[in-house]
Write a protein that binds this DNA or RNA. Sequence first.
DNA 1: AAATCGGGGGC
DNA 2: GCCCCAGATTT
Length: 365
Amino acid sequence: MNKNNLASQIPEWQERLTLVPAPLLAWYDKSARVLPWRSNPVPYHVWVSEIMLQQTRVEAVKPYFDRFLSALPTIESLAGASEEQILKLWEGLGYYNRVRNLKKAAIQVVERYSGQLPADFEALCSLPGIGVYTAGAIASIAFGLPVPAVDGNVLRVASRVLCSREDISKEAVKKAMAQALAAILPKDRVGDFNQALMELGAMVCLPGAAPRCESCPLAAICEGHRQSVAEELPVKAAKKPPKAEEKTVVLLLAEGKVALRKRPDTGLLAGLWELPNWEGHLSPEALQECLGDCGINVVRISQMPDARHVFTHRIWEMRGYAVYCESSPLPEGWVWVTLSELREGYALPGAFSAFAKQLPKLTSL
DNA sequence: AAATCGGGGGC
DNA sequence: GCCCCAGATTT
């Protein structure tokens, strides 16, 4: 489909979408999940929940949401929090730039808006970490503003209802869907309507071959269902496979402590801590050489089982060694920590957990 | 437009 | 294994 055909489809889409709000809201009223961020949708809470929920399932967010707000109950407290604290609160949730941007935005909200999130779509969009979707979600859910919130769920539901084979990974298609949805928003319940579309996508209109059309409130008006092609939708460009990287990871141990290293503040896992590691699969002899270059005298080396960690766009194939060494000064950016200090104050990404989980045994020897 | 940026749950 | 998730930002 070229651009003109896409634009010409919007009126047709709007016509079918007009049938959506009534049955969808009735279904939402009776079937919506009870979620922590729905009980008291003040703007700050909605904001935090939406950032946590970016590319992240509801079940994964639940353990983090209340803990985060208990530690940082106001936008002012978030603005004044240390990077160490916010990364520890985000540890394991992934996409760590989300929380770094959240803090940056909190500082801007304090400085520019007296600590109150602005009830304005464009102003929200200008804050770090808030894009078109998140601005729409906050605007509609927290402030009742008539703005669509088009996420992956909504694109899937809409593609099926409309039986659209447009590629939803294209920005132009997202914009066209948003435009069509903007025209049919029920003005008195925009927040509920946006959440209901997402809820339907998460609970009923499931991805791939799993849609539960038999229990869908939109089955009667869904063109994809009528044509029995819902499972083929939405159309989405294929993504390229992740690239494998070999690494050698070290549990460096001395006097009951383990060495950690601070990662750079840009790039993958920015600002988090890590176990010292080198590119490639090193032999014990080669590793001892690397450690010697760091001023570390090895006492004993033992190999651990290999581990693998899959990111979205790369794979770490990790060889692991436990290395006992003479207690010694560490290079710049490295620290000796006890196990309890690691647990309480240092954000260590899950990529290292296969090795880090051995620490209780190893540090007691 | 494509690449980067995590981690996990469900099948 | 594979898919993809209440996406945003950088290149």
